[in-house]
Amino acid sequence: EVHFESHGEEQAMRVVKMLKKRNLTVEVKVENNKWIITAK
């Protein structure tokens, strides 16, 4: 499981795309203006 924190939507979306290319399940949450990305 991979956790990634991002402060910007643009950066977060880039990471999500990259993770999805690896056929991982990606969950995105926004907490306290931080984008929290979890990949399994």
Rank of each mutant, 00 (worst) to 15 (best):
20 K>L: 14
16 V>R: 03
5 E>L: 11
10 E>N: 07
2 V>W: 15
11 Q>W: 13
14 R>Y: 08
18 M>W: 14
4 F>D: 04
35 W>Y: 08
40 K>G: 05
27 E>S: 12
23 N>R: 11
9 E>T: 07
17 K>W: 13
8 G>M: 13
15 V>L: 14
35 W>T: 01
28 V>A: 02
33 N>H: 07
6 S>M: 15
30 V>R: 10
12 A>G: 03
14 R>S: 05
31 E>Y: 09
33 N>P: 01
2 V>M: 13
29 K>I: 09
17 K>I: 15
22 R>G: 07
7 H>M: 12
18 M>D: 02
1 E>M: 13
8 G>D: 15
12 A>T: 05
36 I>W: 04
38 T>W: 05
29 K>S: 07
39 A>F: 12
35 W>N: 00
3 H>M: 12
37 I>D: 00
8 G>T: 15
11 Q>P: 05
38 T>S: 07
13 M>S: 04
22 R>S: 07
26 V>Y: 06
10 E>Y: 11
33 N>A: 04
8 G>P: 03
14 R>G: 03
20 K>R: 13
28 V>Y: 06
27 E>C: 14
6 S>C: 15
15 V>R: 04
27 E>L: 10
2 V>K: 06
22 R>F: 14
27 E>K: 06
3 H>E: 05
12 A>E: 01
16 V>K: 02
26 V>Q: 00
39 A>T: 06
15 V>G: 00
9 E>I: 13
36 I>H: 04
11 Q>M: 11
40 K>N: 07
40 K>W: 15
22 R>P: 01
40 K>A: 08
36 I>P: 00
9 E>S: 07
38 T>C: 12
22 R>E: 02
15 V>P: 00
3 H>L: 12
9 E>M: 12
14 R>F: 08
14 R>Q: 07
24 L>M: 13
7 H>A: 12
20 K>Q: 12
1 E>Y: 13
30 V>H: 10
6 S>R: 13
13 M>P: 01
11 Q>I: 10
28 V>M: 05
17 K>H: 08
35 W>H: 01
11 Q>K: 06
27 E>N: 08
10 E>Q: 10
2 V>T: 07
9 E>C: 15
29 K>F: 09
12 A>H: 03
39 A>G: 07
28 V>N: 00
35 W>V: 04
13 M>A: 08
16 V>W: 03
11 Q>L: 13
10 E>V: 11
1 E>R: 11
34 K>T: 09
24 L>P: 02
33 N>E: 07
30 V>Y: 14
4 F>C: 15
30 V>P: 01
13 M>H: 04
20 K>S: 06
1 E>F: 13
17 K>A: 14
23 N>Q: 07
37 I>F: 02
24 L>A: 03
6 S>H: 06
26 V>N: 00
25 T>R: 12
31 E>L: 11
26 V>I: 08
3 H>W: 12
5 E>K: 06
15 V>W: 12
6 S>L: 15
8 G>Y: 15
6 S>A: 15
33 N>C: 14
5 E>Q: 06
21 K>E: 11
20 K>V: 10
35 W>D: 00
38 T>I: 13
37 I>E: 00
12 A>F: 06
5 E>Y: 11
27 E>Y: 12
2 V>P: 02
24 L>V: 05
31 E>D: 08
17 K>S: 11
8 G>L: 14
3 H>N: 07
11 Q>D: 12
6 S>T: 14
38 T>R: 06
20 K>G: 05
38 T>F: 07
24 L>F: 15
8 G>H: 14
33 N>R: 03
30 V>A: 03
31 E>C: 10
3 H>I: 13
31 E>I: 13
38 T>M: 07
25 T>H: 13
18 M>L: 10
14 R>V: 08
40 K>P: 03
16 V>H: 02
13 M>D: 03
34 K>I: 14
17 K>Q: 11
22 R>C: 15
36 I>M: 05
21 K>N: 09
38 T>E: 03
13 M>G: 02
32 N>F: 06
15 V>F: 10
40 K>M: 11
18 M>Y: 12
37 I>K: 00
30 V>W: 13
30 V>T: 05
26 V>S: 00
33 N>V: 03
9 E>Y: 15
14 R>E: 08
40 K>Q: 09
21 K>A: 13
2 V>I: 13
31 E>T: 05
40 K>T: 11
20 K>A: 07
5 E>A: 07
33 N>Q: 06
11 Q>A: 13
31 E>F: 10
32 N>T: 03
35 W>A: 00
15 V>M: 12
30 V>I: 12
29 K>L: 08
15 V>T: 05
5 E>H: 09
14 R>D: 04
29 K>N: 05
40 K>D: 03
30 V>S: 04
4 F>W: 11
13 M>K: 08
7 H>Y: 14
25 T>Y: 12
16 V>L: 08
39 A>N: 01
11 Q>F: 11
7 H>W: 14
36 I>K: 02
25 T>D: 08
1 E>S: 11
5 E>W: 10
8 G>F: 14
25 T>G: 03
21 K>S: 12
31 E>H: 09
34 K>P: 00
33 N>Y: 06
28 V>K: 01
10 E>S: 10
23 N>L: 10
4 F>P: 04
13 M>N: 05
11 Q>Y: 10
28 V>Q: 01
24 L>D: 01
22 R>H: 11
19 L>G: 01
27 E>T: 13
33 N>L: 05
32 N>K: 08
1 E>G: 10
34 K>N: 05
7 H>N: 11
4 F>R: 04
20 K>W: 09
16 V>P: 01
1 E>T: 13
13 M>T: 04
39 A>V: 15
7 H>R: 09
